[in-house]
Design a protein around this nucleic acid. Structure first.
Lengths: 192, 192
DNA sequence: CTTCAATGAGACATTGATGTCTCATCTGGG
DNA sequence: CCCAGATGAGACATCAATGTCTCATTGAAG
């Protein structure tokens, strides 16, 4: 065992706890610390040894969500190829984190404060830049601002995540439903 | 003054309280009964005379939200003209209730129960029927299910309502942003 | 085997929101 | 004026979640 100040197993456990909490809070955002602990298979005492309190847990989940988003954005290579294809890649890569994002999206507590986590600003900027690239390249229409398109993307991800949990949308359709609606809309394209 | 069991002014006040609560809870969904009372300009005691408790208040807001949606749907005349125009009318009519809907949308408590208010089912059916009409008429694409389009509409309304509160989207752009994205998507149409 | 960090179980106090109650005050109708 | 109903203010108990604490047990390294 470690004779350092940092326990060696907690780092691994912490990630497991975090993901269990994400999965539970996605379904029940008001879950108790007790329920979170049970879902992770640990005691409430141990949970408190990992996270000082509920607030710290939510903040950690926020960090995880940001990290997952940035990872998805990196893997999606937003500067490569057509903007539309980049958006499709992004949606596909982001699907595993959709539940967590939906939870965070509904956690108003995170947005009420005067200062929000700057990670979201970075993400907004990167996603907004992708939409802007599409506009500059004549691929996307210019009457829908990049800011709104970014916001809409988040909203559709959360909507589809919840609809998936309720069984109203099949999990395998997630990327298509979001990307197709966001890019093409409901109107049928004219035959070329 | 009334000698009946039902006070005569409470009916009027009740509506005012309900709308104040909606406005407050839209901004701060975790607001206390005390804050709700203050926002309505009444005391907590009086608030409790109107609504048995927080749960009853939320249920009443849910009813109000359903009623506003049905009213908007009626005024939008979903059976009339092109489906796309009907959707545009619907979004326009629903804007005043968007904040309330966004609050209700995030109130997971309403959806966790085994049985949800049947008003939502009626609304889902009516809105779904509108999208289906557009599909049957060859106006909308058929690879996006009416259920998903309905869900997406709710999600975009909530997104835009929050973005409007934060000043990221102008209030006057609300109908356009939602309807244009939902109908046309981000992709630029080919020149005919 | 010994040791020690990590854990689980549970007791305990605290906190914040809630629901209920009483009582003084206000107000409009008779 | 007088009164009944409505209100506001506040005291009070309750309740659930939280945060903190202790202590016995476990388990793996030395």
């Amino acid at each position: 065992m470690s004779h350092l100040g940092y326990p060696c197993l907690m780092a691994l456990d912490r990630d497991h706890v975090l993901r269990s909490a994400a999965a539970l809070l996605t379904r029940k955002s008001t879950a108790t610390m007790d329920e979170v602990a049970k879902a992770a298979g640990i005691s409430r005492a141990t949970l408190h040894r990992h996270f000082a309190g509920r607030d710290a847990l939510v903040r950690a989940l926020e960090q995880l969500g940001i990290a997952e988003c940035e990872g998805a954005l990196d893997r999606a290579r937003p500067e490569e190829g057509s903007a539309a294809e980049a958006v499709r890649r992004l949606v596909r890569e982001i699907q595993p984190a959709a539940g967590l994002l939906a939870f965070l999206y509904g956690e108003n507590q995170l947005w009420e404060g005067d200062r929000q986590n700057e990670g979201w600003q970075r993400l907004d900027a990167r996603i907004g830049a992708l939409f802007q690239r599409g506009q500059r390249g004549g691929e996307f229409r210019i009457d829908l601002s990049p800011v709104w398109l970014t916001e809409a993307l988040y909203g559709l991800i959360a909507s589809c995540a919840w609809a998936t949990l309720d069984g109203r949308v099949a999990s395998r359709d997630f990327p298509t439903m979001i990307a197709e609606l966001l890019l093409g809309g409901a109107l049928r394209r004219e035959e070329p």
